Amino acid sequence: MSSTIAGALVVPAATAETVELPHGGAFHLLADASDTGGALGANRLTLGAGADGAAPHYHARSTELFYVLDGTMEFYLDGRSETVTAGGLIVVSPGLPHAFGAAPGATADLLIVLGPGIDRFDYFRHLGRIQQGRADFDSLLPEQQRYDVHFLPGIQWRARSLV
């Protein structure tokens, strides 16, 4: 269970909600915007070998930071491809089309921070349902504004993505 102590949010690893993904990965929900006064949202994403993390999209209002804790990630950044290994950092400005996933044959573990924060825990739960075949991707389309995740369907990043 997370707690707030004198303006600090404390989230012990054992208390973070985990949303399992079928490729052996998971979303670990650390801090939603409502937990931080809107300052940021944070989650940890683990990806199985070669698994995609997100289809091409952009955020209109927020900057997104990715810190690779372990493994090797591939990022699509407005038409360019970048490979980032453990210890590497990517910061994506609002409006920049991007996508990401574990490199082929590699697993990955990354910390993702979105600022200013937007309550997105329900978005990650929804993605888990989609990946488990309990919801359809199209059910996310009406929620793009709410979660500040604007999909770019005309861009082919990989054969499949988590969104």
Rank of each mutant, 00 (worst) to 15 (best):
V113T: 07
D109C: 02
D136Y: 07
P116G: 10
A103L: 13
P116K: 13
S139K: 05
A103R: 13
G117F: 04
P104V: 09
G101P: 03
R134D: 12
L127A: 05
A102M: 12
R134S: 14
A106C: 11
I90Y: 02
F124N: 06
R120F: 06
I118G: 12
D136V: 07
L110H: 13
H98S: 13
I118R: 14
L110D: 01
P104Y: 08
G115R: 10
G115C: 08
P97M: 00
L127Y: 06
I118H: 10
V113N: 04
V91Q: 11
A108Y: 05
G101V: 03
G105N: 09
S93Y: 07
Q131F: 04
Q131W: 04
D119Q: 02
Y123S: 09
L111K: 03
L96A: 09
L127G: 08
I90T: 11
L114C: 08
V92D: 07
G115A: 15
R125H: 04
A99R: 04
G88T: 00
G101K: 09
D109Q: 01
Q132F: 03
T107V: 10
D122P: 10
R120V: 11
Q132I: 00
L110R: 09
G87Y: 05
A135N: 02
D122A: 15
G87V: 00
A106Q: 15
L96V: 15
T107I: 05
R129A: 15
H98T: 06
A86C: 02
I118P: 01
F124M: 13
A103M: 08
G128T: 01
L114Q: 12
T83G: 02
T83M: 10
V91S: 15
T85D: 14
G105K: 13
T107P: 07
G128P: 07
P97L: 01
G105E: 06
G115T: 12
T83S: 11
P104K: 14
P94M: 08
I118W: 02
L110Q: 12
G115E: 03
R120K: 15
G95I: 12
I90D: 04
G87L: 06
